[in-house]
């Protein structure tokens, strides 16, 4: 069963085309790793897949109710405690049980701590624990392992394995090796060729219209 597929997808950032002609499929139990240099448009692609942006061309076929999106910012409130933060997101997704998520990311001892007092790595773990309380099969993750130490990365990898085993899937932009089998999509060949497109304004203007008109 395909959770996500794109056909001939092109995405833009701030009016500039960044990636084009992306066609791929992601099924339950699979992981797709996006690779490519900084600024190549991985974040833009993930935002488009998550529905925050509209594609400039092509289609994304996905049920929005399957997506759990996580980006650089974790969406944590510093004055709320760890469990309050997690309970809020669980509630938003109609879930109630946050214990498994806390346990999976080794946060059980920190539940009463205000999120503002956590270290960067602990915050990140809390941000990732949020994925477990969404109950959604398709994870769309942007650099999930930033500021995680080796043991935390292992926790994350274990959580992903568990997720995949229960019919989940993940598309992730990351530079580290998570230690399990994954399809890799290198976006470099899909970087937009600049001569071919540039929207309404840069094309069709090459004749000289700048003659005096007044």
């Amino acid at each position: 069963m395909s959770l996500l597929s794109t056909t001939n997808l092109s995405v833009t950032r701030g009016g500039i085309p960044v990636l084009e002609r992306l066609t791929f499929t992601l099924s339950a139990g699979e992981v797709l790793v996006l690779r490519g240099p900084n600024g190549s448009g991985k974040t833009t692609l993930l935002r488009t897949l998550a529905g925050l942006q509209t594609p400039s061309q092509g289609q994304v076929h996905v049920d929005p109710d399957h997506i759990a999106y996580a980006a650089h910012a974790d969406g944590l409130k510093s004055t709320l405690t760890v469990s309050e933060n997690l309970k809020f997101w669980a509630g938003v997704y109609g879930q109630t049980d946050i214990q498994p998520a806390l346990a999976a990311f080794d946060l059980t001892r920190l539940t009463g701590r205000a999120a503002g007092n956590l270290s960067a790595g602990q915050k990140r773990r809390l941000g990732l624990a949020r994925l477990l309380v969404t109950g959604r099969p398709l994870w769309i993750l942007d650099e999930p392992t930033v500021s995680l130490d080796a043991s935390s990365v292992a926790l994350f990898a274990a959580a992903v394995q568990q997720h995949l085993a229960t019919g989940g899937a993940m598309i992730v932009a990351t530079h580290i090796d998570l230690g399990f089998e994954a399809q890799v999509l290198d976006v470099t060949p899909h970087r937009a060729k600049l001569a071919s497109q540039s929207g309404d304004f840069a094309t069709g203007f090459d004749s000289d219209e700048d003659g005096a008109f007044l």
Partner: peptide
């Protein structure tokens, strides 16, 4: 505040 800490992105993709 929600924009800065990313909550707004997450809320926009949440089932609300």
């Amino acid at each position: 505040l929600d924009y800065e800490d990313g909550s707004l992105d997450l809320l926009a993709t949440a089932p609300v």
